[in-house]
Design a protein around this nucleic acid. Structure first.
Lengths: 199, 199, 199, 199
DNA sequence: GATGAATGAGTCTTCATTCAT
DNA sequence: GATGAATGAAGACTCATTCAT
């Protein structure tokens, strides 16, 4: 356990770098951030950066997986209270949850959407066991689809399209506020999702 | 008309720069392109770049407007042959047209989607008279919505969401080929659009 | 006389360039002025500049001679009314005149002192017949020195030192306002000049 | 003291840059010096320059303060041997010292006078404690003025004017050698200073 | 004479990366 | 592991100057 303190210290540095990177990416934009500015903000030496990340984009990818994982973990915890089989409600609930989250954390939305779609994130889940808890997300949702008579493959495709649609609309309406605000567009979006899922 | 030859030359230079920028942006990625490489490819001096554009992103924006304008102009010309009022068919036709176009020109898709959504482009239409011919696009489509009982505002919102959805799905499936290929996802997408537009 | 109109036009261009150069030199500083900015302000083509001046500093030198010539011409016209032989009064009158002029035209002071001392200008007088009218300035003043028993050579040296002193003090007190304002320092300066000239 | 070696190295680099800057400024003129040429001469990388200075003019200002400080420190050490109260002699001694110094180091004179008058330097003394040893300069001299019945304020004004006068005359006569050489003008200058200080 | 598009050398500045401590 | 001084390649941008019209 004497190493754990060193280990802790190491993790602290990595986390500080991640956090500083996040702050700078969302405030300055990725193109305007340098390794220098990240380490400066993190309060560590420039060389330290290379002990944990290969470059700026490596840090970014770490960040996106972490943040995306958080978003969906939160959504899971909230949506489990809904009764099994209530497909439309669950999807709308999750979508609503994500919209609210993004609406309250525009910087996060900016970072994720500007760089990697949720789709890419899903891919990471499949590969990396670290995010295995997120599989339960899929499974709860997928089971609802099954119960409503969808094949697994069809279900995945619909989820994919809905995620793309929601992400895209969120970005445009929340960040760009164009052509509608999220409040104006949300009812229409929900109506469309309902229609899509209605048998 | 005596100036026309000079004016012509100038336009040629600008076009050469636009074309070279396009080529490099799509092959190397915008971050990996320098003014130097663009002018070199265009066969003009470095300083010449600044006679026509303020920076790399200025050229990019020019490019996106031009390319987007081309895409929609093409879609207009093709869709006018459909009878008035056939809303679902027209939307599907246009979507299909755009998908095929992007599928045959992945570089173009990469450039446009990575940087500006079609939504931003629509904004430009409203402001700039240069793209006034694109307004007919809206009008033909909007008339179909009207004839099917939609309000103008509702119609615009639906179009916006569909464009976001199609653009996003295209990018993921055509460029990233994840989680499905465009051929796999297209039928599902069409089915969803049909459901959305069905009264 | 048919050429005079062309000649006039030419002079107009040169004068416009001189004037624009003056304006830009004093507002932006010489280092921040380009041929481009000068011609733009003057409303002439870039190439036209080279028809009249070899470079930025050529224009500057022209400017300084012109401006200095104006200053001293004005001083001559004013000081001639004083009776011959009143050396101290004449010097103080001229110094006062120059101080007031600089005080009302700080830009002019900035331009002249920042670049060429009045001493350099005096050199030009000796060489260039164009400014021969300025010789009368010397003669009136020098005669006063003679009448007060100075040798010509001594007179010139005293004038030189006084000019340097006044120019330097003006620059510091009027432009930098340090360590005194011109109003505070002027009585002391006058007292010193009086002592210098008192036999 | 373990850091002292690194600290030493850093100071060496800074000094090398200062020295190279000095050499180039005086031989080539400031306008003709590039960061590149300075670092090349100093034998350091271009980027190293920016670790110590923000730009060319930052280095120049450092240089002027250092050099001016040296000049006056030397003058102090020399003038303290004079008996207290011998105002005229002390001023002449100091002026003579400065003239000789400039005469033997024309490049230094060129650098200082072309850019900042001694007046500006005095301002720096008042603010920055680094140059506090220079205050003794003022104090010794000012005390002499007091003993001769001058007010503090009057004394400062006279010193200011004399410094401006001497600096200006030095520049013209030593650098431009116009209209007199320093040897020719010095007796006249001394005579004038004597008259100024004579009660 | 006048023009201004085009040039490309030259300069500043940033920044990822290294490495001795 | 941690540091941060040093590097120098790379890129953005300026601008005096030319020359065809």
């Amino acid at each position: 356990m004497i190493l754990s303190r060193i280990e802790e210290k190491k993790n602290k540095k990595k986390e500080k770098l991640l956090f500083s990177g996040y702050e700078l990416f969302v405030t300055e934009g990725i193109n305007n951030c340098s390794i220098s500015s990240i380490t400066k903000k993190a309060g560590v030496a420039k060389g330290t950066f290379y002990l944990y990340f290969s470059d700026k984009y490596d840090l970014l990818n770490n960040l996106i997986l972490i943040k995306s994982s958080e978003i969906l973990s939160d959504a899971i915890n909230a949506s489990v209270e809904l009764p099994k089989g209530s497909l439309t409600e669950r999807v709308l609930f999750i979508v609503d949850y994500v919209i609210n989250l993004f609406n309250n954390n525009k910087e996060l939305l900016k970072l994720i959407d500007k760089n990697l779609s949720l789709g890419v994130f899903v891919e990471a889940i499949n590969k990396d066991e670290t995010y295995s808890n997120l599989k339960s997300f899929s499974s709860i949702l997928l089971e609802d689809f099954m119960e409503n008579g969808y094949t697994l493959s069809k279900a995945k495709q619909i989820i994919f399209i809905v995620i793309e649609m929601v992400g895209s609309v969120c970005y445009s309406s929340i960040i760009l506020e164009h052509p509608s605000t999220i409040d104006e567009i949300k009812p229409v979006l929900f109506e469309m999702i309902k229609k899509i899922l209605d048998k």
